[in-house]
């Protein structure tokens, strides 16, 4: 096991930041720590890197205890490396100096040269951080963190400040780099797409508590509660009685009964020709929004109000009476 957290808790004054956090990462894992702002995810990352001290709990890194009751290994001595949200490149040093500043990085010269080539940084080595673009700074920060060949790579919101276009590119680059170096990686993000595309394991945090952990597809299709379901994209939470065929259910406190999460694309409009016509539910379109690649309608039936995604070409208007069935 590369990283194992047990019952990590942290409070600032009277505010609980983290409570009883436990999870593990295997060697080679890419773990996404997902949560909205204020969920405590960055604090957790800083605790793992040693920059913050937890109030209680233990952390084992690469089979070595780094945090327990009487021990808190200083960040300098931990076998992990953190990439900061704002990169924290040393502004007074060239890119090359930045990359080779890490302790013992000279020993990993071969790896670093390879990474520099791979990340297309060869022509930037003599520049200063303020002279290169945001995407380039990101890559420099990553290479710098990898230069000490850490067992665990930590990334704090690696894509949060990039605009959408760049985000896609950098995400692809990151995935390529992760595949290349095969370092165990733990990243923090509030963007569910990051988790879905980059991670093979996701830990969902809310208000300092772990809500769910598992593979991205697993969490997407089998959320354990309303929060996780909604975090992973637009969804309809309906009482399980309306979807008797659905096998994954959870107890929903808001409805006070078992519920299921039905994604908008899982609902189908049916025409009179369809075999499902008889079992379909009657509804009326009460609003319509156009999103480009799809349109979203809100349909109200006797007991439900549901969001449905339709292909953009479909001709419908508010007030239309339709029939739909939930395709689970």
């Amino acid at each position: 096991m590369m990283l194992s957290l047990k019952n990590i808790s942290k409070k600032y004054d009277d505010t609980t930041i983290l409570e009883d956090i436990s999870f593990t990462c295997e060697k080679g894992d890419i773990v996404g720590l997902i949560g909205s702002s204020g969920s405590g995810k960055t604090t957790l990352l800083r605790i793992i890197s040693g920059l913050e001290t937890p109030d209680s709990g233990t952390i084992k890194l690469n089979n070595e205890m780094v945090n327990d009751k009487l021990l808190c290994k200083s960040p300098e001595k931990r076998d992990c490396s953190l990439v900061f949200q704002d990169f924290a490149l040393f502004p007074n040093m060239t890119i090359s100096d930045n990359i080779f500043f890490g302790k013992g990085s000279i020993k990993n010269n071969e790896l670093i040269q390879e990474l520099i080539k791979f990340c297309d940084l060869e022509n930037l080595l003599d520049r200063y951080p303020h002279e290169i673009s945001g995407g380039e700074q990101q890559r420099v920060a990553l290479v710098r963190a990898l230069s000490i060949n850490p067992s665990l790579l930590l990334l704090d919101e690696p894509l949060s400040h990039l605009d959408n276009d760049l985000k896609q590119n950098i995400r692809n680059e990151l995935i390529k780099i992760f595949e290349k170096v095969k370092t165990t990686t733990l990243f923090v993000s509030h963007d569910i797409e990051d988790a879905m595309t980059m991670a093979n394991k996701v830990v969902v945090l809310k208000d300092g508590l772990v809500e769910q952990k598992g593979s991205p597809s697993d969490i997407y299709s089998r959320p354990l509660n309303r929060y996780v379901a909604k975090l992973f994209g637009k969804t309809n939470i309906v009482a399980a009685s309306h979807a008797p065929k659905s096998y994954h259910r959870f107890f929903d406190e808001f409805l006070n009964e078992d519920a299921v999460s039905i994604r908008p694309h899982q609902i189908e409009l049916v025409t009179s020709k369809s075999l499902k016509y008889k079992t379909a539910i009657d509804g009326k379109i009460i609003s319509k929004k156009f999103y480009g690649s799809f349109q979203e309608i809100i349909v109200k039936s006797e007991e439900l109000s549901l969001a449905i995604h339709l292909e953009p070409e479909r001709k419908i208007k508010i007030g239309d009476k339709i029939k739909f069935c939930m395709d689970l």
Binding site: P75, E76, K77, S81, F84, D86
Partner: peptide, 14 residues
Amino acid sequence: KNINDASRSLGIPA
């Protein structure tokens, strides 16, 4: 501020 955290994370002596 962050820069110092970065150097610690890179294992550099104070």
